[in-house]
Design a protein around this nucleic acid. Structure first.
Ligand SMILES: [Mn+2]
Ligand SMILES: [Mn+2]
Ligand SMILES: [Zn+2]
Ligand SMILES: [Zn+2]
Lengths: 127, 127
DNA sequence: GTGTATGTGAGAAGCGTTCTCACTTACGCC
DNA sequence: GGCGTAAGTGAGAACGCTTCTCACATACAC
């Protein structure tokens, strides 16, 4: 593994929650300048394939990523204020796989993402 | 309402299921040539605001849209073969709204999309 | 009529992402 | 050591979807 990829992997671990490729690149510009944006994209792509980084939504036009090493079927809960990401069990209990719903439609896959405010952000709001 | 928007609205109704803006524009090129792609985007945007068209996912880089006039909280079930879209009740029963999950995270919103094969596509597969 | 608001088509622009290319680095093999 | 190959890198160009700009058209209000 190259020095750049190691640095990028550290930045991913240091990230509080969800981030975009450009945000990660900006954070690297401070601590480890000189790493190209294309390299960040390549490293994040490799981590997605390896399973340590997952796509958790979109913000504006950009893909939101987050570190998530959990394996097995699960989903994510994203704080819309601070970006914190929490892995959660599938609220459907995996019960839909191969099941028929509606008018004979057989479900092969599903996407679920929950959004809200984490405990910390709620405490800091006091509105 | 302009002639163009009426034509685009008809094409949306005629569409079998999910479609991209470009696909709709291509279908118009046959029956009603001369309508600009920007006009299609503008009309689809207006229909989204009006609530008659909804975003049901992404395919490659493009936004997938579908006609859906149903109101109230619901989600969608998309056939990955023919694009047919079926509205479904929220499988969470709306139970999550305002509820705490995980470590005190309060859910304000969620996204659910189911994918699979509709009855027709399953019948035509016989593999 | 005159003004104002809204819509239109063509192409330019924007923007996130991927690709190209020349270059470097790491490693296996002899 | 020399040498070949594979993988990674940075800069910028290219790409593709979407939005914007601009000149023009149409519709309604007064
Ligand atoms: Mn995860
Ligand atoms: Mn719907
Ligand atoms: Zn938070
Ligand atoms: Zn189908």
């Amino acid at each position: 593994m190259s020095d750049q990829r190691a640095t990028i992997a550290e930045a991913v671990v240091a990230a509080a929650g969800a981030f975009t490729a450009e945000e990660l690149h900006r954070s690297l510009a401070v601590s480890a300048p000189g790493i190209g944006l294309a390299t960040v994209y390549r490293a994040l792509g490799a981590m997605q394939e390896a399973g340590s980084v997952t796509q958790v939504g979109q913000r504006d036009g950009s893909t939101l990523l987050a570190r998530c090493g959990r394996d097995g079927h699960h989903h994510h809960l994203v704080c819309t204020s601070c970006g914190r990401v929490i892995a959660i069990d599938c609220p459907l209990g995996g019960s839909l796989a191969g099941r028929e719903v509606g008018d004979g439609h057989v479900i092969t896959r599903h996407e679920i993402t929950l959004y809200g405010l984490c405990a910390d952000c709620r405490a800091h709001e006091e509105d």
